[in-house]
């Protein structure tokens, strides 16, 4: 087998394992197996609902936003502006958390501060505005407010703790990874 094929096989290894597992489930318990595929199709549609425009926006941001602009608003010396922008971008996002990682990648490539990127990821995970509306209607106002207020602090604490705990080398490694994913 040639090198390129090996690489593709390696990239899709996890998917192939899951495919085999799901086929085994289908053979052993057809009802359960069909349910697996129904849920998978649901997830694909959920993804088609938000991920394609997010990736288009990532591409546009990559091409049109200058590095100096990003450094100014989200970089090391961006201060409170960077923090607020991080919260805003995360909260205005839609879709599952794995959509946040490529967005984090482009922000890192353009020179955004690590803590601000972790704020985007944290806010994306826990305070997306569209989801909050859902939360209020199913869980009630009190539950939602307690979680939201706590999460504002949680997101900040985690973001700054990450920056403190990660060494200079770790940080360089992360920026290097972001460049590799371009």
């Amino acid at each position: 087998m040639n090198k390129k094929r090996m690489e593709i096989l390696k990239k899709y290894r996890f998917f192939l394992v899951m495919l085999v597992v799901s086929l085994v489930i289908l053979l052993l318990n057809p009802v359960l197996g069909k349910n697996v595929y129904r849920l998978t199709v649901d997830s694909v549609f959920e993804m088609l609902g938000v991920l394609p425009p997010i990736f288009v926006l990532i591409g546009l941001l990559d091409v049109w936003v200058k590095k100096e602009t990003m450094v100014k608003y989200m970089g090391k010396d961006s201060g409170i502006v960077g923090v607020l922008l991080g919260f805003f971008l995360g909260a205005a996002a839609a879709g599952p958390l794995y959509g946040a990682f490529p967005v984090a990648g482009v922000f890192l490539r353009k020179g955004s501060r690590l803590a601000n990127v972790f704020i985007i990821v944290g806010a994306w995970a826990s305070m997306k505005i569209p989801l909050l509306l859902f939360e209020v209607s199913s869980m009630g106002m009190k539950f939602t407010l307690i979680r939201l207020v706590m999460d504002v602090f949680g997101v900040l604490i985690i973001a700054y703790a990450m920056e403190k705990i990660l060494t200079k080398d770790d940080e360089l490694h992360i920026y290097e990874l972001a460049r590799k994913m371009e």
């Binding site: 899709y12 996890f14 998917f15 546009l60």
Partner: peptide, 27 residues
């Protein structure tokens, strides 16, 4: 054109893991 190429590349980067993940979630 470059932006769209980058968009596709960013998507292609996570596609293999993504396909595995949605099957795992279904399971």
């Amino acid at each position: 054109k470059i932006a769209l190429k980058k968009a596709w590349k960013a998507f292609d980067n996570i596609l293999p893991q993504f396909l595995g993940i949605i099957l795992l979630i279904g399971i």
